[in-house]
């Protein structure tokens, strides 16, 4: 059976990265609004998870948010657009780490299921 709760959170974790990458290449304001919205949702969905890497996942998500929020400010004030793009790239790196952790967690879960 598919665990639909997991589909939701995994969906947003991956979408956070893809929308972020989309902004980095397009420099488009619409894409930036989508990226920040999706990143915030991905963070919120990690609240209260009680898995092995829950703390690390939440931390990476917060890092991505703290890159994107100032990036949004800088982008829309129009003063430091290159810096905003730089911050978005930083957020994308955090998103990638988040996905790597997600995969590690899946492997751990798979292993522990085998043991019992």
């Amino acid at each position: 059976m598919i665990n639909w709760g997991k589909v939701w959170s995994d969906f947003f974790i991956v979408l956070a990265l893809t929308s972020n990458v989309g902004f980095i290449f397009s420099h488009d304001p619409y894409q930036l609004v989508v990226a920040i919205g999706v990143n915030l949702i991905a963070t919120v969905l990690k609240f209260g998870a009680k898995k092995i890497l829950a703390a690390e996942m939440l931390a990476t998500a917060l890092v991505a948010d703290l890159h994107l929020i100032p990036a949004t400010f800088l982008y829309f004030t129009g003063t430091h657009v290159p810096l905003a793009i730089g911050l978005a790239i930083g957020a994308a790196v955090a998103n990638i780490i988040s996905i790597v952790l997600l995969v590690v967690e899946i492997i751990f879960e798979y292993k522990s299921e085998e043991e019992f």
Partner: peptide
């Protein structure tokens, strides 16, 4: 954990 979906809804509609 209880805050997950309520906060998600708020962020979603704002975006």
């Amino acid at each position: 954990f209880q805050l997950r979906f309520p906060l998600m809804t708020i962020i979603f509609f704002t975006t």
